[in-house]
């Protein structure tokens, strides 16, 4: 068991490293695409700046506070996106027969799908998110207690896991309908866009849904309430602000189940 996990982690690293080397052989293209990623997501934040040229606060949050939410969400999404590569193109891979080829290799299918076409250029998006996040931390007028400082990596780790799980579920659905890849976008990119703003701008039912149904609120909202010392619009127990690991674990469990079911379906239909 331990041996198999080690083999798969090792396999992931090998495949990812191979794709990095491939991308490095097209240096100019790599540089341009990384810059492109940086700019795309950069303009995303410029849009928020444009909004703030008309207002001073949104949903009771200042620009720096929203930058903190934005940066957290962008970083978590960026990291998940980097780690899972093009998992969202699973349907296309099934059609091309790539999945069959992966299944005759002595590695987990999931690991191979995630590592396939590993794209380091996604660091562009991470860099942009990191920049905004870093600036907000610098600009926020906060008393950085040990608990607050510790909460930052906590937010990033579990937020990333939540996005990993959502990406995985979105991809696994393609074992049933290959055309559904855009459906996943609603949850991944939709989710991260949502989390870039304070949830106070959404109706209470939406916040509840984002807490209990699709737990995107645990990516950065609840940890940020703690760090930024903001009131919880749902008035949930304070423990909720530390509950990200629980949400991440539950969602990962669901993701694993959906993925396994999808693979089982694929292996009994061959399509």
């Amino acid at each position: 068991m331990v041996d198999r996990v080690a083999a798969n982690v090792c396999g992931y690293a090998l495949l990812a490293w191979m794709w990095i080397r491939v991308s490095m052989s097209y240096r100019t293209s790599f540089a341009l695409l990384t810059l492109g990623q940086f700019l795309i997501t950069g303009l995303d934040f410029v849009a928020i700046l444009v909004m703030f040229s008309n207002v001073d606060a949104l949903g009771g949050f200042s620009l720096t506070e929203i930058a903190f939410l934005y940066g957290g969400s962008a970083l978590c999404l960026g990291l998940a996106d980097l780690l899972l590569g093009n998992i969202e193109r699973l349907g296309q891979r099934i059609r091309l027969g790539t999945v069959d080829q992966m299944m005759v290799r002595p590695l987990s299918l999931y690991v191979q799908v995630c590592a396939d076409e590993f794209a380091l250029r996604r660091l562009g998006r991470i860099a942009q998110g990191g920049l905004v996040f870093g600036w907000s931390i610098y600009a926020l007028d906060l008393d950085w207690t040990a608990a607050r400082v510790a909460m930052v990596p906590y937010l990033l780790v579990f937020g990333t896991v939540i996005f990993l799980a959502i990406f995985t579920i979105g991809a696994a659905v393609q074992f049933w309908t290959a055309e559904s890849s855009e459906l996943a976008n609603a949850f991944t990119y939709g989710g991260s866009t949502l989390a870039q703003f304070p949830l106070t701008i959404y109706p209470t039912e939406a916040i509840k849904a984002l807490t209990f149904v699709v737990p995107i609120a645990f990516v950065n909202w609840y940890p940020s309430l703690f760090i930024l010392d903001k009131p919880d619009p749902l008035h949930l127990p304070t423990a909720t602000q530390f509950a990200a690991p629980v949400a991440a674990a539950l969602l990962s469990f669901v993701a694993a189940a959906v993925w396994r079911t999808g693979v089982r379906r694929y292996r009994s239909t061959g399509s």
Binding site: R21, V22, S25, G97, Q101, M103, V104, R105, P106
Partner: peptide, 22 residues
């Protein structure tokens, strides 16, 4: 499946199992 993969080799006629850019 994974254990078996160590013991078998497969060539899928038209599609290569090698990495295109390597």
């Amino acid at each position: 499946r994974a254990a078996l993969a160590q013991r078998i080799g497969v060539v899928f006629g038209q599609r290569t199992t090698l990495w295109w850019d390597l």
